[in-house]
Design a protein around this nucleic acid. Structure first.
Length: 325
DNA sequence: CGCCTAACTGAGAACTCCCG
DNA sequence: CGGGAGTTCTCAGTTAGGCG
């Protein structure tokens, strides 16, 4: 994206392709590198090409939506024909711990919303912590009085089903307490909503040419029944209606064999059981951790583990573990 | 709009295995 | 042989969506 090397003319005459792009495309993307010479901690200049084509449509206040789904209200100002993010931008920078050489990808929806992806300028990979801002106590929300980020309240899933946690369940209560300790916005969301939203966001942010599913582990997955239910659609699409052995492989290449059993009458809904606990133990997986299961070949799954719910004391420091084990 | 059913999930009971 | 750990199976509960 953004590659414009064909010497187009930006002083008023646009090619028809450009005209269609700027007038008809629903989403416009651009990137910005953060350089201390541009004083990015205080403000961020929008690309002139972008603002020249859009500035009449830009409102005075816009919304930045970070990878975590949390949104920030940002004020715009124009100086010397350049549009800047100003009011609220500093908060966004602080909350995401942005530093020099990081680069951001903005997706503008044509109204007032910019969705932002954040990349580390050294590793050229996305900043994993950006997905947990505002959820693990990382965001300094109390600083910004009127510009506190807020959890965007959206329908979680088109098919949100399942039993809510019992109020007196000790395991759930423990996890609920842990989450409450680590996040600023705990009052607004039920544990299930948070979990489903997280699963959805992680699933959306994770891309693979292989089929995959995301699970945030509950206490029962690593204790209790010591099983892991595979989502219906994944089971139906990729697994047979009989018991199989699935190989789970971590990033070090170490493998575990896990029994995958269809556990609902007449339906292909698999659960991991035999061998699952060995995988949990050997990889130090705890409840609250997020696992991505990527089906790389027949019954061989690459597993990525993101620790988020465990070791609450660690997370209070703002260090979100991102270890694909 | 209300009812009904299918889809989906979590929880835990029941069962099996293994080790001391 | 008993107890604990691990595995399998079933049930209860919620909700989206179809239908009258």
């Amino acid at each position: 994206m953004g590659g414009r090397d064909d010497g187009q003319n930006w002083d008023g005459s646009r090619s028809w392709e450009e005209d269609i792009y700027w007038t008809h495309f629903q989403f416009i993307h651009f990137t910005q590198f953060l350089q201390t010479t541009t004083n990015f901690q205080q403000q961020l200049a929008l690309p002139k090409t972008f603002s020249d084509n859009l500035k009449k449509k830009l409102p005075e206040n816009v919304t930045l939506k970070g990878p975590s789904g949390v949104v920030w209200n940002i004020g715009l100002t124009t100086r010397d024909n350049t549009v800047y993010f100003v009011d609220g931008w500093q908060q966004f920078v602080n909350d995401h711990s942005l530093k020099e050489n990081d680069f951001l990808v903005f997706k503008y929806n044509g109204e007032s919303l910019f969705e932002v992806l954040i990349f580390d300028g050294n590793s050229f990979c996305e900043k994993a912590t950006s997905y947990f801002v505002g959820k693990c106590g990382h965001a300094q929300t109390e600083q910004g009085d009127s510009k506190k980020p807020v959890i965007e309240v959206t329908p979680v899933q088109t098919k949100k089903r399942g039993r809510p946690p019992k109020s007196d369940d000790s395991g759930e209560k423990l996890l609920r307490d842990l989450v409450a300790c680590n996040k600023e916005h705990s009052e607004a969301s039920t544990l299930d909503r948070i979990r489903k939203e997280d699963e959805k966001k992680i699933a959306e942010s994770f891309t693979s040419s292989f089929p995959y599913f995301v699970k945030i582990l509950k206490a029962g997955n690593v204790g209790g029944s010591r099983t892991l239910r595979i989502p219906y659609h994944f089971s139906a699409a990729h697994l047979p209606d009989f018991k199989i052995e699935v190989t789970l492989r971590n990033s070090k290449g170490k493998c575990w064999t896990v029994n995958s059993v269809p556990c609902a009458k007449g339906k292909i809904i698999h659960s991991f059981c035999g061998g699952w606990m060995a995988f949990v133990r050997d990889n130090g997986v705890n409840f609250g951790d997020t696992c991505i299961f990527e089906l790389v070949t027949n019954y061989v799954m690459q597993v990525y583990i993101f620790g988020s719910g465990k070791e609450g004391a660690d997370n209070q420091n703002g260090h979100v573990k991102l270890d694909s084990v």
